[in-house]
Computed example of a mutant assay.
Amino acid sequence: MFFKVIALSLLALLPMVNPPTTATLLLGLSKGMSREQIARQVNLTAIYLFVTLCISFFVGSSILELFGISIPGLRLAGGLVIAFIGFRMLFPAPSRPGEGPLNQNIAFVPLTIPSLCGPGTMALVISGAVEISHVPHTISRFPIYAGVVVSFILISLLSWGILKLAGPVCRLLGESGIDAMTRVMGFLLICMGMQFCINGIKEVAQDPVFHGIVATESSALPERARELMGNDIKP
Rank of each mutant, 00 (worst) to 15 (best):
M1I: 11
F2N: 13
F2C: 03
F3N: 09
K4R: 10
K4N: 13
V5C: 03
I6S: 02
I6T: 08
L8K: 10
S9F: 09
S9T: 12
L10Q: 07
L11K: 15
L14G: 09
M16T: 08
M16K: 04
V17P: 07
N18L: 01
T22R: 04
T22A: 09
L25E: 00
L26Q: 03
L27T: 12
L27P: 06
G32N: 10
G32D: 12
R35W: 14
Q37V: 14
I38Q: 05
A39K: 11
R40E: 12
Q41Y: 13
V42C: 04
I47W: 10
I47V: 11
I47L: 14
Y48N: 14
L49M: 08
L49R: 00
F58W: 14
V59Q: 05
S61T: 14
S61R: 15
I63C: 08
I63Q: 08
L64M: 15
L64C: 09
E65F: 14
F67E: 02
I69Y: 15
S70D: 11
I71Y: 15
P72V: 09
P72L: 13
G73L: 12
G73W: 15
L74G: 10
L74H: 13
L80N: 09
V81F: 15
R88W: 03
M89R: 09
F91N: 11
P92V: 00
P92M: 03
A93V: 14
P94Y: 10
R96I: 06
L102E: 13
Q104M: 07
N105T: 10
N105W: 12
I106K: 13
A107R: 04
A107T: 02
F108T: 05
L111E: 08
P114R: 11
P114E: 03
S115I: 07
S115K: 06
L116H: 12
C117N: 07
G118P: 00
G120Y: 06
G120D: 05
T121P: 01
M122W: 00
A123S: 14
L124F: 15
I126G: 05
I126N: 02
I126R: 01
S127G: 01
A129V: 03
V130N: 06
S133I: 03
H134C: 01
V135D: 02
V135P: 00
V135Y: 04
H137G: 00
I139F: 13
I139R: 09
I139Y: 05
Y145K: 04
Y145E: 00
G147A: 07
G147C: 07
V148A: 01
V150H: 01
S156Q: 01
L157D: 10
I162K: 04
L163V: 00
L165R: 06
R171A: 10
R171D: 13
L172F: 15
L172G: 00
L172V: 01
G174S: 07
G177N: 01
D179T: 08
F187D: 09
L189H: 07
C191T: 15
Q195I: 06
C197I: 15
I198M: 13
N199V: 09
K202H: 14
K202E: 13
A205R: 15
P208K: 12
F210P: 00
G212H: 08
G212A: 11
A215I: 06
E217G: 03
S218H: 15
S219E: 05
L221A: 06
P222A: 13
R224D: 11
R224G: 02
R226K: 12
E227G: 05
M229W: 11
G230F: 14
G230E: 12
N231Y: 05
N231M: 10
I233Q: 07
